[in-house]
């Protein structure tokens, strides 16, 4: 296959960027999208150009590093597929492919297609955990959890933190990411004690980081490589609103 690429190139966080055109000749349809970029990069380096920087690591769709906007679609055309698992057979010979980084104020560009997603870590740090210090746990079977509950929690827990939901959202909202964690932990008995506080703190953090609000377009759910449902957002809204109406005990307020 022969393809024409238009790739966002930007030398550094404060440097100006622009789309640059590259010809990608002799691409095998069995290559993954990232392998196609590897080939382009090898060729760029042989001609003395600087290779295109992009985030990637596991290349099996689970680490969440890869993050490309391909022809205006986060992670490209195949639903439920991260960029690293997208194969070139999904494109046709002669296609023009536009490749851009995730765009959000909270995701500043580091270089080329690499963005800084630390904002997502800070949302987790705000409350996306169960406070269970090592050593303090009761027996794993001490609390029964219905299979359906744990399965629903697992559906949400699959989030790989890639940020595609933000990239695809017309509002630049991180609601699906935040809601997936709130849902995962909020469904399990272990997550109950901190449930409302968690929702309140994580949502507040999400706002502070400068993500947009949720208008329920549903684009995030379609972009999500793990196809996490916007039902999680309903749950987040419920927990957050309940948290906002529930009086906070003085002790908890002080620990804030």
């Amino acid at each position: 296959m022969n393809l024409t690429l238009h790739v966002w190139r930007q030398a550094g966080p404060d440097a100006p960027g622009r789309m640059v055109r590259y010809e990608a000749a002799d691409i095998s349809p069995d290559m993954s999208f990232l392998e196609m970029l590897d080939v382009v990069n090898e060729r760029l380096m042989q001609t003395g150009d600087s290779p295109i920087a992009f985030d990637h690591d596991c290349r099996e769709g689970i680490c969440g590093s890869c993050s490309l906007m391909i022809n205006g679609v986060a992670h490209g055309p195949n639903p439920g597929t991260a960029t690293c698992q997208l194969h070139m057979r999904s494109f046709a010979d002669g296609d023009e492919i536009h490749i851009e980084p995730w765009r959000a104020r909270a995701f500043p560009v580091v270089r080329d297609l690499v963005v800084d997603r630390a904002a997502l870590d800070r949302i987790i740090a705000a409350g996306g955990f169960v406070s269970a210090a090592t050593g303090s746990a009761p027996d794993g079977n001490a609390t029964l959890i219905p299979k359906d509950t744990v399965d629903t929690a697992m559906d949400a827990a699959q989030c790989i933190g890639c940020g595609a939901c933000v990239a695809a959202c017309p509002n630049g909202s991180a609601s699906l990411f935040t809601a997936a964690k709130i849902t995962h932990l909020g469904l399990l008995p272990q997550g109950q004690p901190e449930r409302l506080q968690r929702a309140r703190r994580m949502v507040e953090r999400m706002d502070i980081e400068g993500f947009g609000g949720c208008t329920l377009y549903g684009e995030c759910q379609e972009a999500c490589p793990k196809m996490i449902s916007i039902d999680t957002i309903t749950r987040m809204n419920r927990d957050f609103l309940r948290a906002s109406m529930t009086p906070v005990r003085a002790a908890v307020a002080e620990s804030d």
Binding site: A137, G140, L185, L188
Partner: peptide
Amino acid sequence: DQCVAQGVPF
């Protein structure tokens, strides 16, 4: 036990 307490959905 530790992982269950943390909310790992085994």
